[in-house]
Amino acid sequence: MAQAGIEQTETMTVREAIRQALREELDRDDDVYMMGEDIGDMGGVLAVTGDLIDEFGEERVRDTPISEAGFVGAATGAAATGTRPVVEIMFSDFMGVSMEQTMNQMAKMRYMFGGKTEMPVTIRTTEGGGMGAASQHSGTVHAWIAHFPGLKAVSPGTAESAKGLTKAAIRSDDPVFVFENKMIYERQGEVPTDPEFTVPIGEAAVEREGSDVTVLATQRLVGDSLDVAEDLAGGTSVEVIDARSLYPLDTDTIVESVEKTGRLVVADESPLSYGIHAEVATRAMENAFFSLDAPIQRVGTPDTHIPFSPTLEDEVLPDGDDVREAIGRIT
């Protein structure tokens, strides 16, 4: 990704990085436009689209009625017929409303039609707990999409990957879901300013090198794991990888790391059963079984919904302490 020569970067938040990605892609390609609820003058409920409507107008930053099934379906139809919609689903929990159009149309058309159509649609949505937003506004659902054949799913943990993955998603001729975590919009990082910068879908990033244990993390837990790695430095050397892309998943980077460290913790906010953790663990075992020195550890949400009360929400949400404990169990 880094070109020859000096790469220019700028410090910005994850929110700004996503907005910059949207701005650059709207600028680059007239066929790209956005739609979603209150993304125009309101700037999005979590203020991601911001002032884009002032620059691009209401044709290209379209407010929709509250009709997720309708506009996700319309985006699918539009993508099959020559335009490149970028949809915002306000909270990932609302994907329940649009799941039919997602799984039976968007995911299947290219294949069912024998390759007769492309599907250049991007779905951005925000997920995760931590805001006291209760069970219908806090879910982490990216495993549904990563599981479903025909859909790609990315989950940035840093500002750089937020920008690069959003741009790559929009440029892709396949349906890509970008899962933003609502608790990291304010997280800052260095972001390349080159408008041609993208993060290829399917590549993980080693965010910190280490030799004793690998933590494969996603979203908010990338930052939390980096903090833990810093704390443990001197005692335990922790390698932290941001998965970045959930499907396709960068098996090689994970396997290479596990071959080096012999230990793996998978940290993802999804419910523990039948999810990302299981997939990563299986790939590690399939490919690096004889390098493993200890059982693989999972850090995630016990199989509950996200409760409202802060006491209860703190209890179920995985965080740095859970990562630390998981590392402690195997080192």
């Binding site: 929990d93 209760a134 219908q136 409202f308 006491t311």
Partner: peptide, 30 residues
Amino acid sequence: GKADGYCNGKGGSMHIADVDAGMLGANGIV
């Protein structure tokens, strides 16, 4: 978010419910 709220603190403003009283819940899904 208290233990003896209508939903034992699990629901909050958006999910207050009392099915016995015929109130089938506030709802976070429009």
